[in-house]
Design a protein around this nucleic acid. Sequence first.
DNA 1: CTGTTAGCGCGTTCAT
DNA 2: ATGAACGCGCTAACAG
Lengths: 343, 343
Amino acid sequence: MNGKSQGGRATLHDVAALAGVSVATVSNYLSEYPYMRQSTKDKVQAAIDQLGYVANPAARTLKTGRTGLLTLSVSDLRQTYFAELAERIIAAARYRGYGVMVESTGLERVREVESVQSVRRHLTDGLIISPARMTASDASVFDGDYPLVMLGVQPFEAPCPHYLVDNVRAAYDATMHLVKAGCRRIALVGGALSGDESSRTARARGYRLAIEESGQRYDPRMVREVADWNSLGGARAVTALFDDGIKPDGILAGNDHLAFGVMRQIRDLGMNIPENVRVVGFDNIDESRYSIPSLTTVDQSSDAVAIKAVDSVVAQIESGGRAPASVEYVSHELVYRASSPEV
Amino acid sequence: MNGKSQGGRATLHDVAALAGVSVATVSNYLSEYPYMRQSTKDKVQAAIDQLGYVANPAARTLKTGRTGLLTLSVSDLRQTYFAELAERIIAAARYRGYGVMVESTGLERVREVESVQSVRRHLTDGLIISPARMTASDASVFDGDYPLVMLGVQPFEAPCPHYLVDNVRAAYDATMHLVKAGCRRIALVGGALSGDESSRTARARGYRLAIEESGQRYDPRMVREVADWNSLGGARAVTALFDDGIKPDGILAGNDHLAFGVMRQIRDLGMNIPENVRVVGFDNIDESRYSIPSLTTVDQSSDAVAIKAVDSVVAQIESGGRAPASVEYVSHELVYRASSPEV
DNA sequence: CTGTTAGCGCGTTCAT
DNA sequence: ATGAACGCGCTAACAG
């Protein structure tokens, strides 16, 4: 009862036996060990072909401690931003020879915490996580020296490399653009005035900064929180604004889906974009190029984020441990389109 | 130099040593072996807690042959349909105790074929794949008895359980709805008149069937192929139709994104939806509920697909092999909204 | 240049 | 009810 007979799967021993060499030789061949006679190589390759041999990754992992897998933990793949990010991270990982196990946590704190287990239990070699509900009190799950990269605004200091867009600055820039374009009553749809530090609160701060710096009066009623970040949420926020007697002439939306709804409602109220109301979104998702009108939006270069994140985890994996804490703001850029042309 | 000392990770031996029992006892405890003295259990648990012991999945995999992972292979997560499908498959797998490694193949045949390797090499326990570019000549990559589920229309017979929407029927139903609503010049944006069997060709057949059966003249110029399935592609197809002197009063789009672009262009040409032109989409993505006007579309119940797919692979994994070939059409349903109300 | 051997950490007999 | 010992398939020393 040798390896070959059970399960039909050939092992290194089977290959070695068939080729008439030792297992070490086969292993050497597979790791492209240079000092080998061509005739030996040929024999081994022939045996491999004949048996259809493929190495058992579990055995390799047990020996080397590497799985060749990364974990990506995001809150919801149905959010276009995350889908696009995941796509790019998978591509970047693939390019470096890694597979990606994707965890989706549905904005639930417990599941965010649980999603860390895959690395901690060594099911994967490293973790890229963009938590949305974890707080400083959960930070202990990041104890350890496993490779880790954090993405997005967080209410705590990440004990690892952390890549994010400067949301305060991005919202400031977007708001300033509206100011310069002549808007005097600028609303923020999807910001948050209070609560744990998040992209929502950061954007609200940037918005406020720009409003005050430009000498306009800051009015908290101009900032609308939205529960569901889809078009409907955006449309409803617009309705609420007008119902409250506030008539904005410029609207910054928390993401592009909200902006689509905002634009829809503006038009349904009989106003024109950008003539009566200018609209700016966040994320620059593919669809923002094709909306009516096409959407001016803040590009967060998720492509750059993906590459930086993967490069960093992979470097950590190869160096055998956690990299020191650091914060890097990836560049953002306002992409001008029809909903609020450059001035 | 016992296990504990290297890498800081506790092993079964460390736990056994600390608890003063043998490794087998600890293993028994972990597998909830019933015949055990309470005092022993307590000692073991105490040692586990003290050491923060977690089993090494690689060693377990080597022994049991199970990884607890599935592979999901789709063409592009940026396509909303796949993002939503992936989200649901991850949720269904999670519910059954499995993780999901996601492969994105970017509509490249080679990468689709490569994505099968993760199961074949036993990196994961089973594969759910929705290939878009593979042909019958690639079918040999599915040789073997590894757990496999196929999704979507394919130009070959899948050697495994296969779940898909009856695209011919769905397109037929959608087209018939337009016919019954009084449309006399119905166009198909995103169909394909020739080429390998795919959802595009199937939908074109269903469309044609309905047109001919309803006594209308079938005109191939009414079927527009589209390279990029986004709003812009849909808008351009509409422009092309009108440029060719064809003035449709009903348009069936290959997916919702195309439909959004179709609607945009219709409106930009000064026509109203649904008064002048009715529009129907495919997929029922979240956004279709919020568009202007909201979109009548074919729901493919990707939730049902996800659950069936995961249930099937898991059953195959647990039974130790490939399930026999079978084709199951999951139900589809026309969701009526403003772009073409029910008649 | 190639072969021998000792584990990686766990599950699982078989004794006791 | 518990322990001893082997082997899953592979890699990495080291020996020759």
